[in-house]
C-alpha cells in the first residue's frame, strides 16, 4: 500500500487515505490487540447501550419516541428470527441473532457515517470494527458455536446423526459445511465492508468531492444488507441445527 500512501502526500485534501493492514497495536502481556477496532467497537457498544437504556428506562404502555423506535427495532429483529427459526423455537435466540444484527449494523454505519479521519491515531485508522478480519471471524465462530450448542441442547449426541442422515456418502460434505459456514460468513462481511471503504477511499483520492457520494450511499446500502445477511444466515444455521435433515 505504499504507492497509494505516496499518492496521499500529493493530495492536498487528505480527507481519506488508505492504510490497510496497519494497526494501532496494544500489548497485553505477550499478546497484541488491534486498538482501533476496540475503540470503535466500544463506541458502537456505547451507542447500543445508551439507546437501549433510554428506551427501557421508563417503559410505558403508550411508548414515547425513543421507546417506540427501539420497539420497532426489536420487532424487526423478532420477525427476522421468527422467520428463520419458526414460531416455536425463536424466542431464546432473539438476543443472539438480534445482537449480531445490531452490532454489525451500527458498526457498519458508524464506520461509514462518522468522519473518523478527523481523529488521528499514532498508527492505523479508526474505521468500522467489521472491516477487521478478527471481528468478523469472532462473530462467525460464535455463530458456529451457537448452532452447535442449539443442536446439542435439543438432541444431545443425536445431533451427529444429521451428518449421515440422508446418506453417509455425504458425510465429508456435511463436515466440510461446518467449516465453510463460518468461513463464508466472516469473509463475506469482512470483504464487503473493507471493499466498500477501499472503493470510497480510492475515489476520494482520485476525485475528492461529490463523485464518491453515490458510492458512499451504495456503501450504506451494502452495509445494512450485510448486517441483515449475517443475522439471517446465523438464524438459518441455528434453525438447521434444531431441525436436522429430513425432519420437517
Amino acid at each position: 500500500m505504499e504507492i497509494l500512501g505516496s499518492l496521499t502526500i500529493l493530495n492536498t485534501f487528505t480527507l481519506a487515505e488508505l492504510e490497510v493492514g496497519e494497526h494501532f497495536l496494544w500489548k497485553i502481556g505477550n499478546y497484541t490487540v488491534h486498538g482501533q477496532v476496540f475503540i470503535v467497537s466500544w463506541i458502537v457498544i456505547g451507542v447500543l447501550l445508551i439507546a437501549s437504556l433510554a428506551a427501557t428506562r421508563n417503559i410505558q404502555t403508550v411508548p414515547g419516541e425513543i421507546q417506540n423506535f427501539m420497539e420497532y427495532a426489536l420487532e424487526f429483529i423478532r420477525d427476522l428470527t421468527k422467520n428463520q427459526l419458526g414460531e416455536k423455537e425463536y424466542r431464546p435466540w432473539v438476543p443472539f441473532v438480534g445482537t449480531l444484527f445490531l452490532f454489525i449494523f451500527v458498526s457498519n454505519w458508524g464506520g461509514a457515517l462518522i468522519p473518523w479521519k478527523l481523529i488521528q491515531l499514532p498508527s492505523g485508522e479508526l474505521a468500522a470494527p467489521t472491516n477487521d478480519i478478527n471481528t468478523t471471524v469472532a462473530l462467525a465462530l460464535l455463530t458456529s458455536l451457537a448452532y452447535f450448542y442449539a443442536g446439542f441442547k435439543k438432541k444431545g449426541l443425536g445431533y451427529f446423526k444429521k451428518y449421515i442422515e440422508p446418506t453417509p456418502i455425504l458425510l465429508p460434505i456435511a463436515i466440510l459445511e461446518d467449516f465453510t459456514k463460518p468461513l463464508s460468513l466472516s469473509f463475506r462481511l469482512f470483504g464487503n465492508i473493507l471493499a466498500d471503504e477501499l472503493v470510497v477511499a480510492v475515489l476520494v483520492l482520485l476525485v475528492p468531492l461529490f463523485v464518491p457520494l453515490p458510492v458512499m450511499a451504495l456503501g450504506l446500502f451494502t452495509s445494512a444488507i450485510q448486517a441483515l445477511v449475517f443475522a439471517t444466515l446465523a438464524g438459518a444455521y441455528i434453525h438447521e441445527a434444531l431441525e436436522g435433515h429430513g425432519e420437517e
Partner: peptide
Amino acid sequence: DFDATMPLMAVQFLLLTAILN
C-alpha cells in the same frame, strides 16, 4: 493478521449480548 483481538472481540460480543438481553 489474527491476534488476541479475535477472542477478546468474541468475549466482548457475548458480554454485549448478555447486557443487551
